[in-house]
């Protein structure tokens, strides 16, 4: 079992939920991303999602779009990100998921990517624009390297699709709680509860909920019905607002602590 599966098992034994934090790699710099990953680990975050910036992020709202643009201006590439993760792995065992779009991976080369990602210590990959109909060309290689293929389920997925997606997913299911892009709408808790019930009947994989969860209170509320909660845009906004300040890493640490504390309830 990989780091992701093991983390969910440990949490389950303790009756806890996973806190998953998203960061756009290279925003404000790769050095800061490195420091922030380690600080998230210290803050008790369970999984980090490292956003691979892309020029045309069609599933992202304005906050993550802007972060991607900043990271790309700084010259951040997939190769740099994999090298960064290799450095993180020397000092941390926090499960790491790469989150992004297909083209940068495709251009890097699917097979080469999977090998390098495994060597670097990547545990899972979530490619927003690779639905199950198109994912074989990449997952043939990531499966061979033991990298989890995290898959999205959305409010528009019917039972048939939930089954099709979860049969082929590994690691965990990422449930997109709103019909929309990242960081724009707030999920309706009643809908999340209903949809989680539906998904849980079909799959035994852990299910994490993300898109639009920005406060500790919301995270805590959603966590009641899920195995994990993803917070992305709210952290990215905090990073943007404090990117030039000396206490950036401390601010991210405190916000993660605050989220994690709510989570335990």
């Amino acid at each position: 079992m990989g780091r992701i599966g093991k983390r969910f098992d440990d949490l389950k034994k303790r009756g806890e939920k996973a806190l998953i934090i998203y960061l756009t790699a290279g925003d404000p710099s790769l050095e800061k991303t490195y420091e922030m990953i380690l600080c998230l680990d210290r803050a008790g975050v369970d999984i980090v999602e490292i956003g691979v910036p892309f020029s045309d992020p069609t599933a992202d709202g304005p906050i993550i779009q802007a972060a991607s643009q900043r990271a790309l201006k700084g010259g951040t590439s997939l190769l740099d990100i994999l090298n960064l993760i290799e450095e993180v792995r020397k000092v941390s065992e926090i499960p790491i998921v790469l989150f992004g779009y297909y083209n940068p991976v495709f251009i890097y080369g699917n097979e080469k990517f999977a090998k390098r990602a495994r060597e670097a210590g990547v545990d899972g990959i979530l490619v927003v624009d690779l639905p199950p109909e198109e994912s074989d060309e990449l997952r043939r290689h990531t499966d061979a390297e033991g990298i989890d293929f995290i898959s999205l389920i959305t409010p528009t997925s019917d039972d048939g699709r939930i089954k099709k997606i979860s049969e082929r997913a590994s690691g965990f299911i990422y449930y997109v709680s709103v019909t929309g892009v990242t960081g724009t709408k707030k999920p309706e808790i009643a809908d999340v509860r209903k949809d989680m019930g539906k998904i849980k009947k079909i799959t035994s994989l852990p299910v994490s909920v993300g898109f639009g969860i920005s406060t500790p209170e919301q995270a805590g509320e959603v966590a009641q019905y899920a195995d994990g909660v993803v917070v992305g845009s709210a952290i990215v906004r905090l990073i943007e607002e404090n990117s030039k300040k000396n206490n950036l890493v401390e601010k991210v640490f405190s916000f993660a602590r605050e989220l994690k504390n709510f989570h335990f309830k």
Binding site: A59, P131, E134, S151, L152, T154
Partner: peptide, 11 residues
């Protein structure tokens, strides 16, 4: 192909 996010696939 259909390289789109899951939200759009059913549509």
């Amino acid at each position: 192909g259909r390289y789109a996010s899951e939200t759009l696939i059913p549509a």
